[in-house]
Amino acid sequence: MKELSELEFPETVRYTEDHEWAAVDGETVRIGVSDYAQDQLGDIVYVEMPEVGDIFEKGDEFGTLESVKAVSEIYMPVGGEVVAVNEALIDTPEMINQDPYGAWIVEIRPNDAGEYEELMSAEDYLDMLRG
């Protein structure tokens, strides 16, 4: 596992306490997991994703990431309806290890834009990780 200084936390996305990130892209929000999360989990071998049309509240579990010997649930940073899932992750889950901010998991249409604003900035998230 890497030191925090070796990990990347871009300021273009917002973060949750459970290590998801969210990025606004026009009308929709893309969601993935942070560099810290992928590093903790190690080689990701499988991503369990919801279906397009599924509706979640903020904080709901919407899928899981699996490494060889661990399973980690992933939670919605903001509530909304799933409009797309990243099908490429089915065959190449390692994309999350290689490019955690490029490898989005789901794209949703948010219910409430205010929920995004409540998420942590890169600086706040890093402070949280430093404890």
Binding site: Y46, E66, S67, K69, A70, V71
Partner: peptide, 12 residues
Amino acid sequence: LSTREQHIRREK
């Protein structure tokens, strides 16, 4: 595929 099994996923 041991992540399906009890020693990892426990009650799930």
